[in-house]
Design a protein around this nucleic acid. Sequence first.
DNA 1: CTTGTATTATCGATAATTCGATAATACCTG
DNA 2: CAGGTATTATCGAATTATCGATAATACAAG
Lengths: 112, 112
Amino acid sequence: MSDTPSLHDRALPVADLLKTLAHPARLVIACALAEQARSVGELEQALDIHQPGLSRHLASLRAARVVSCRREGQSMIYHLANDKAGQLIMTLHTIFCASEAHASPALKPEAV
Amino acid sequence: MSDTPSLHDRALPVADLLKTLAHPARLVIACALAEQARSVGELEQALDIHQPGLSRHLASLRAARVVSCRREGQSMIYHLANDKAGQLIMTLHTIFCASEAHASPALKPEAV
DNA sequence: CTTGTATTATCGATAATTCGATAATACCTG
DNA sequence: CAGGTATTATCGAATTATCGATAATACAAG
């Protein structure tokens, strides 16, 4: 019975990641960062989320180890820090964006 | 401005699906059903979730159109009803189960 | 050291999720 | 139709997530 990792325990970290991404704002942020690293200001401008909320969602993503940030001059540059999350985002894009006919080739917010 | 599907609106259904699966119990249920259709009794026995909770989670999955059910004699047989959810589950399995060395080749709960 | 900008943290209120326990419904068997 | 099993729905309480507004901190420029 020692090789039964509880099935539930194995599902827990996965469910946690899903929960972290299960918010439109956080999902869009993660998508944008999967494309390239961006500063908070760029994210705010590109995604149309007001600063306090953006910061709060970035904090959640940081706490879940999905993103990391480094300071660069005055700006804080965020980037994906979790390969698994990155793979997941890519798959979501394939499933939900590529299959339905959308103009933009990716979840690309206008450009920055 | 009419070709701006709001990026947020495009993310909403995806985030909803993630939220639906973002619970260990529901995730495990969906995994089990991705493998094969099962009755409620089989799920209860295989996944070690007590009936009322199981039923509640199945109701959530039904409401989100992730699963459907058909009656078969006394039992209610559940099966995945959403191709996108199925693809997502498969990807999750690839990312989180296949990469780490686990004995079982799949999220296979003992057999039923 | 002071000003201005970028970023993060906090507060309070509201809404949503979750869980255990229990009741109600639907179906098969005889 | 009665008895037994399988499944679903409901209730109340506790925890957690979410949001807008505002305050606090960190850095760069002069």
